[in-house]
Design a protein around this nucleic acid. Structure first.
Lengths: 351, 351
DNA sequence: TTGAAAGCGCTACCAG
DNA sequence: CTGGTAGCGCTTTCAA
């Protein structure tokens, strides 16, 4: 009888424990459920627990979930895990779910409509009990609504689609855009511009409108823009900033609002590419306060979006909706905050 | 009869489809399973499919999984999603799993032994079919081995623990450390130093040893080090670099190997804090080639670790082990690559 | 090719 | 307080 090494050890079930403890399986089930402690004699409970430990029993969450009608999972859909804002967001949500024994199923859509559609369907088939969607573009509205109508609570976060009326953890992008504008205006900038994200994404629309409105209201000049940047990468931010800045100095903006820190990284390079200095010749305001913002050269002035907090709130909201689906949760809003560092200064301060 | 808005729509099961299509549930099951297409009359299949679509039937992957003995999930454990190396790693793994309809359950241990222990247990209770562990410290060895012995394939990635003998997707940190050393030596540096990560983490041990060995072999001076940095943050990298550089210029290292790009971000600040210039006074070599490395000032010379590729390979390996647990997969190794940018130059090149 | 019946591992209801 | 029984939604033998 050679030892059968390598072969998987037989999985211990509740039945095995019942046999070992000389009780019925239903008794084992109760003995191992903390919420049923009162229903069982202390002595049997101890016997069962001992047998379970002895045998190395591990509960089967999937089986118990099937019976209980729950999966203890929540889908989290992000557009791009590589974008530094989504890591803290996912962490925040994960931590909120952890306490209730829920776990996230994480999917990365790469900002693609088709992939989002596939994932939403797949998450539904896995019977996630809620979905936290941070990857929505305006043309995803119908998709999200359909899922919600199928009875799965959908929480949108950061990238909301207000036309859907879905519960949302917002970030006040309007206030954020205004904050960026007012900061540049307060410093005395009279020619400003923005490097925008895709207008298929609601927050970028909001930032754009708010910035534009504040600048216009103050009578400053919003110089001709560049087209919205499709992908939120440093390289694309760099190209856009180059196009914006590589013009006759008399018409060149002295302050630029770049709607995302990763793109702002590229904008800082563009300034150097052109032999200009930041902030002496051009001030740059970013958005998000990503972890590297304090460590660029010069350190980046940026509008803080507390992604961890947004994620956490989204997780909490998802749990509430799971517990009480009928409830009218319209969600909450996380305010922006201007973080002034050294990439902004009064115009011409270097001359 | 008012419309019962708001209440969850009743979930359609295979039974409902069977009723609608006038067949037995087992027939529905077969009709909807592509691999059983040959077992069923085309006409009935069409009828069933039509009924399913009509009713809006969605398969219940959890229930089918329970019966089939699979969950289609793989646990991925990372030390810190905020560390930019783990986002691409998770993406690589996710993409590898996607094709086989597997999804990751992602957990973030915050580099904490207790949290890792909790998560591993929890993942086991959820019956993940494999675990990709990238968060292992040397003192986690036993934990990982226990899980593997319970019959769940464990793949370690990046942060391997070689004493466990677990299948691993390695990155050749020894070659990486040597690459960093040789680069500085080739440039003519004679006093070098390193900012090390925790020696509880095998890759940092490897990088440290390889760097030290190469420097010593070349007869250069390895200046007194600073203690390993516990957390891989820019701030801690900055403090460590300050301690290293804020000394008598005659003894100050001219080249520093910082074993992680995030810490290198801090090291670059430390150089500026001291009124020194990089690379003229101090050359800095980072590790990982994180996305921001090309965008620091100066752009960071670094040893590239292709995290996406490691993650992808780990995902593929996990799937192989699921399909064939007995197999002897010792894993693969992803080579490092030196990416030379402008944070390194010959010593004294600015004087 | 289809139907019937058993059961994945667990929980919850009903008796006693 | 404990045992028996049914069943979550699905797949898979085994017969017909």
């Amino acid at each position: 009888m050679a030892e059968d090494t390598g072969s998987a050890p037989p999985r211990v079930t509740i039945r095995d424990v019942a046999l070992a403890a000389n009780v019925h399986v239903s008794t084992v089930s109760r003995a191992l459920d903390p919420s049923k402690r009162s229903l069982i004699a202390e002595a049997t409970r101890e016997r069962v627990v001992a047998a379970a430990k002895e045998l190395g029993y591990q509960p089967h969450l999937v089986a118990s979930g099937l019976r209980r009608g729950q999966t203890l999972t929540v889908g989290i859909v992000v557009p791009d895990l590589g974008n530094p804002i989504y890591a803290p967001l996912a962490r925040g949500a994960t931590h909120a779910l952890e306490g209730a024994n829920y776990m996230p199923l994480l999917a990365d859509t790469q900002d693609d409509h088709e992939r989002l559609a596939r994932f939403l369907r797949h998450l539904a088939e896995r019977r996630v009990e809620a979905i936290i969607a941070t990857a929505a573009r305006l043309d995803d509205a119908q998709l999200l609504v359909e899922i919600a109508q199928r009875g799965i609570p959908v929480v949108t976060a950061v990238r909301t689609v207000s036309s859907t009326g879905l519960p949302a953890v917002l970030h006040d992008d309007t206030a954020g855009g205004r904050l960026a504008a007012e900061h540049l205006l307060d410093l005395g900038h009279e020619r400003v511009a923005q490097v925008r994200g895709s207008l298929e994404v609601e927050p970028f629309v909001r930032r754009t409108e708010a910035f534009t409105a504040a600048v216009t209201a103050a009578g400053a000049t919003l110089t001709d823009g560049v087209p919205p940047v499709p992908h939120l990468t440093a390289d694309e931010g760099r190209s856009a900033a180059l196009a914006l800045l590589d013009v006759d100095p008399a018409r060149r903006p002295t302050g630029v609002f770049v709607q995302n820190d990763v793109m702002a990284l590229g904008a800082l390079m563009a300034v150097r590419d052109l032999g200009l200095r930041c902030p002496e010749d051009v001030s740059i305001v970013g958005y998000n306060d990503a972890f590297f913002a304090a460590h660029t050269d010069p350190p980046l002035t940026t509008v803080r979006l507390d992604a961890y907090q947004v994620g956490h709130a989204a997780g909490v909201l998802a749990l509430e909706l799971i517990a009480d689906p009928g409830q009218e949760h319209r969600g909450s809003s996380v305010p922006p905050e201007l973080v002034v560092r050294r990439s902004t200064a009064p115009p011409g301060s270097g001359a």
